[in-house]
Write a protein that binds this DNA or RNA. Structure first.
Lengths: 335, 335
DNA sequence: TTGTAAGCGTTATCAT
DNA sequence: ATGATAACGCTTACAA
């Protein structure tokens, strides 16, 4: 009942072995006699011993923890189902391991660099990066720190970073093609942030599809992946292009906002304006009318990223190419 | 460009001072000459030095990190806006500090005790516990470990743990009273898990209000805070009590499920059955019709919990009583 | 198989 | 104000 936690020395004393033997018994038990092993196990149980990670990490140079980095300037993203999916993917991905998850979020009005500094100072063995913007200097920091890392979503720099992604271009193509197929001629889009690869790629998918169909590609407004942002962008888009008969909002949250704007303007969906979203992470099923969308396998994607990171940490050979997951169209009532 | 990170010794050498002086200069700079300070600052910048936390923590016996513990057996809670709010509250609460956040989630089908063990072994300086169930032995583990901790939501054991809470009884009262006020006579409830204090308290608030109004308190079914669970519970509730003219679902997610069930049965809301939820964390505004609910100030509550924890860590005097935040009714179209 | 001893990178104590 | 020096709790050669 002492106030200070027991140390390895205490265990060794209790088990009447040397500290080294105790250590060996505790870590896998290689080269320890059955008797010693039993004695140590006993002592550990009696004392309620649990190794001091700081001390261990000091000598092993491992921390047994990984970071989930979300360098998102907007705290509201926490509300985004995408992030929830990422979190889920990472926790599922490290289930069964002894790894701890350290959450590195950008903080309200905080000087940049804190995250980079943290990553650089050996407090974690590796990192999963999600919701990554072009401007944050994470990629450079990661390279500098030589920290094993896997991005969820294609990073920007030279192809030195590992990543896993959903095929955003294909997804945007599916969505846009659907609108073309149902006979829409004037198809606008509300993009994601254009400093994120998901934003860029989905815009590209939309544009290429329209070009292939011989339709105009001038109607787009940049959005921010939030519902309110989607509503606002829709106002702008409709003001500039009142003749639109379809909108592809590249996230369901934004599509929800668009729905709101369309409703406010008395436009019927899909009769007047067809609408299609992207993500299918729970939001689409709950809108009225139910949103047609493109399923984004985030959990799967993030689990793959985590698996890759674990491989990296284990010294596995570097995978040749990134894993790219395929999205698919989900029928709703809006397109 | 060496592969190993620079150590304090490197800095000291570079700055031409002793390691002790370097250390002092880095930590607050008490009792260091301006020259020495400058030299060290310079060296730190040149070398890109950042202290090794493990080493530091080994001697200071602090880890500069706190845990957010979510001992929730169901991984799906990650989707719950409540959790999102908690996460938000904690990150906001530690903004401006140097604290790191370690996320401790229950993992799919994992032996219990891992979290307790982790908390007990000095890897974090303190903990915020949310979504706590009676059965998990966290409280005991926390006491045993003498780890500073603050619960978000009243814990069960003897009153030894700090906590912050929303006044669930009052919130449930507001909701139920509203239903009474609009003339409903047969008011059922879908409770939260009854091994959680939020579940227990909201049920109590409902019951007391009905008793005071001279109405029956037999119509309740236990729910699980999820939308699907809410839908299922509503089926059961309506089967058992077809005469209900109002339902209080103690979370908006569950209320959403109830809405679905009512709709499926051709019951109009609020004409046939009035409905009121609890939380107001984004869900209520997006249902059709818009849900009447009770605002739950989670972010605020969790920030308070975090502030309390920081105080504890700083050795502040123990607050006499838990902070209890007050919910309030939010008008919608369903009651 | 076991134990001895040497660090891992910091901070803290105590002379100077 | 500064600098030796001794911990902190652990793992890991290396020797026995």
């Amino acid at each position: 009942m002492s106030s200070v936690p027991p140390t390895l020395d205490d265990v060794a004393r209790e088990a009447r072995v040397s500290r080294s033997t105790a250590s060996r018994a505790i870590n896998g038990g290689d080269r320890v006699s059955p008797e010693a092993q039993a004695a140590v196990d006993d002592a550990v149980a009696r004392l309620g011993y649990t190794p001091n990670r700081a001390a261990r990490s000091l000598v092993t140079r491992r921390t047994d923890s990984i970071a989930l980095v979300v360098p998102e300037p907007d705290t509201l993203v926490l509300t985004d189902p995408f992030l929830t999916g990422v979190l889920r993917g990472v926790t599922d991905g490290i289930a069964g391991t002894d790894l701890q998850l350290v959450l590195l979020l950008n903080r309200q009005g905080e000087a940049p660099g804190r995250i980079a500094r943290y990553l650089g100072s050996g407090h974690v063995d590796g990192a999963i990066v999600a919701s990554h913007h072009r401007r944050d200097q994470l990629e450079a920091a990661l390279t500098r720190a030589q920290l094993p890392a896997v991005f969820v979503g294609r990073p920007f720099g030279d192809a030195t970073h590992h990543y896993v992604d959903v095929d955003n271009i294909a997804g945007a193509h599916m969505a846009t093609q659907r609108l073309v197929d149902v006979g829409r001629k004037r198809i606008g889009t509300i993009t994601g942030p254009l400093d994120m690869s998901a934003g860029i790629d989905r815009l590209q998918g939309w544009r290429e599809t329209l070009e292939a169909a011989g339709l105009p590609t001038d109607a787009f407004v940049e959005g921010d992946f939030t519902a309110i942002g989607g509503a606002t962008a829709a106002e702008k888009l409709l003001d500039e292009h009142p003749d639109l008969d379809a909108i592809f909002a590249v996230s369901d949250l934004m599509a929800e906002g668009v729905l709101h704007t369309l409703h406010a303007r008395g436009l019927r969906v899909p009769e007047d304006v067809a609408l299609i979203g992207f993500d299918d992470l729970g939001v689409a099923q709950h809108t009225t009318p139910r949103l047609t969308t493109v399923h984004n396998p985030v959990v799967q994607t993030t689990m793959a990223a985590t698996a890759t990171l674990l491989g990296l940490l284990a010294g596995a050979p570097v995978p040749a190419a990134p894993q790219i997951f395929r999205p698919y169209l989900v029928e709703g009532e809006t397109a």
